[in-house]
Amino acid sequence: MLGMLWTLVSLTSCEKKPNKYSAYSFDYFDTVTSIVGYAASQEEFDRVSSEVLCQLEEYHKLFTIYHRFDGMENLCTINELKDGAHRTVTVDRRIIDMLLYAKQMYVKTDGKVNIAMGSVLSIWHDYREAGMDEPWNAKLPPMDQLTEAAKHTDIEHLVIDEKNNTVTLTDPAMTLDVGAIAKGYAVEMVAKSLEKQGITGYVINVGGNVRVIGQKGDGSPWTAGIENPQEDEREPYLAYLSLTGQSLVTSGSYQRYYVVDGKRYHHIIDPLTLMPSEGFLSVSIVCQSSADGDALSTALFCMTPEQGKALIESLPDTEAMWVMADGTKITSSGFDRYIVQP
């Protein structure tokens, strides 16, 4: 539990009503985690937030593709080759459930969310890292390398044995990258566990995957402001939303990128073009599950607004807001019912 701090954010009243506390961590999913909650005391908040961080740590260790840990199989060890082939790996049930969910989302999003794209995404990852280390030397991955890697992204080669909790990748050149769903999935699992314990009045935010648990300390709904990435004094927030128990996930092209010849290249790669998807500044999803929100925000980034709208309108209690490259906003038909006036 390194790198945690509990700050008393506000003490606005001397009445005995719950106070608002917050904590940050940088230890999970290569992003920043923030926990905000209403509690009767610092101790009570610390107890809940350290449980949240402990659970996030477990999911992080299971789902990371960049680190292996002694004595455990995770996504990183599933990706490893032995004698030129992938092993059949017996894994924690939580990995099986997440992979089954990912396969469902592949079908739902017409292949836009494909966790079998590891080979392509790792090339982008390496070029992005190198380009950030030496910005003067930043390069784009060669397209022939990307198209060669893309031959090994068929999710049918991810074989899951639900009975025995085993995973096999039957294409030796294929690897998994769960970056598009792991954060949201983990946040949802943690939120559900808090709800089961009857805990309310908390918000978990892992790198833009916001999940609200119950109402605020005074019983009113939470208000969420979706930041305008562009500098505009008249419109600092693109939308004010009222949330009780939902998730709000925003994927933005401004969140993670590197610069080649003065042009930004962000991290959401379109499976068709194998290039960062163009056309949007951000896509926000409001829905029940933060796992769905994470997957859908990635999927919509790689679709036209028309395609995305058709997908969103087909799903119950799911709404979206697209912010186009020029700053114009598009919303799905029911998005307005979450909007409140500041």
Binding site: V9, T31, V32, V203, V212, T223, A224, E227, Y240, S284
Partner: peptide, 23 residues
């Protein structure tokens, strides 16, 4: 700043209608 693990946050006491969550 993710690489440096730095967070810079504004705490405004004058703003009444600020959202609870900014994303």
């Amino acid at each position: 700043c993710l690489p440096h693990r730095v967070v810079i946050t504004v705490h405004s006491t004058s703003e009444q209608d600020a959202p609870d969550i900014v994303t």
